[in-house]
Simulated assay, not measured.
Amino acid sequence: MRALTLSTLAPLLLAVSLSTQLAACVPAVIGGAAAGGAMAADRRTSGIYIEDQNIELKARHAISQELGDKNHISVTSYNRNVLLTGEAVDEASKQAAEKAVRGVENVRNVINEIVIGPKSTFSERNNDTYITSKVKARMVKENRFPPNYVKVVTEATTVFLLGLVTRQEAEDAVDIARSTSGVGKVVKVFEYID
């Protein structure tokens, strides 16, 4: 059997070292490709798509700084229009959240759908996530329009529909959402392109 020398061991160590570093790149490459695919199938420009993500991060931070963690407030930005959903402990907190978001750079409009009441439970939030997934799955299955044109947000069984859509696409999306089991109410937050 041949003894390992520095000249034979060095390439082996280099290969092992590089393989561990490359493995960390795979999720980043896959995640980047998925985000790129989502952007390509979206009517927003890639710049606005990224800006919406930045607005959501900045708005969540602004609300957290202003209100702490006594409230459960979700932020969704679509084409720089921000939808606020969730629960606030009182009207002052609801208004403070809206004011904080209006102060975020590049926000065009704020739709404040926050309700006054106790924070939703983990179980209630899981149910809302399940409803969202059912609505999105039906949009894919029914194939009336490209499903990436409509963003679905569910809060307390109320489904909010956002997107840049034609009036027919909006009607189809509302029809699909309304006829999905578990949906209590549907709210349109669309921008129409026709």
Rank of each mutant, 00 (worst) to 15 (best):
Q95L: 09
V153S: 11
L22G: 08
E142M: 02
V16L: 14
T154G: 06
I114V: 14
V29H: 00
D128S: 01
P118N: 05
V75G: 00
I193S: 04
D90F: 04
N143Y: 05
G117D: 07
V82T: 09
L13A: 14
R125E: 07
V110A: 11
T129F: 11
S64V: 00
T5S: 15
V101Y: 05
T129E: 01
G117E: 07
N109R: 15
K141Q: 11
V16W: 06
Y130T: 09
T158M: 11
N54P: 02
I30C: 05
G184Y: 15
P27A: 01
L18M: 15
S120A: 02
V150R: 11
A23T: 13
R167S: 15
T85R: 06
K94P: 02
L164G: 11
A170R: 07
A156M: 14
V29D: 00
P11I: 02
T45Q: 05
L22M: 14
V152C: 09
D128P: 01
T121W: 10
K151D: 02
R44C: 01
Q95R: 03
E191N: 04
Y149A: 10
S77T: 01
V135P: 10
V150A: 08
S133C: 09
P11Y: 03
R2S: 12
F190S: 02
A173V: 08
E113Y: 02
V135G: 03
V183D: 11
E191M: 13
P118W: 01
A88N: 03
E171K: 15
R144E: 15
V186A: 10
T154A: 12
S181Y: 14
T180H: 11
A34L: 12
F190M: 06
E142G: 02
I63A: 12
S17K: 03
V110C: 05
S77K: 07
E191S: 13
A10F: 15
E87L: 05
G117F: 03
L13T: 15
S120I: 11
R108G: 02
D69Q: 12
V187E: 11
M1K: 14
E66N: 10
R144T: 07
L67R: 10
V16K: 00
D194I: 04
K134R: 14
S19Q: 06
S123E: 11
Y130K: 12
V75P: 03
G68M: 01
K94M: 05
V140I: 08
R102M: 08
A100T: 02
L67E: 05
A92E: 06
P147Y: 07
A15D: 03
N112R: 07
Q53Y: 13
N148W: 07
E155G: 00
C25F: 14
I63C: 04
V189E: 04
E56I: 07
G103A: 12
G37F: 08
T76L: 04
V115L: 07
D90P: 11
E191Y: 05
S133T: 13
E66L: 01
L14W: 12
L14D: 09
A97L: 02
G86F: 04
L83Y: 06
A28V: 13
Y192P: 10
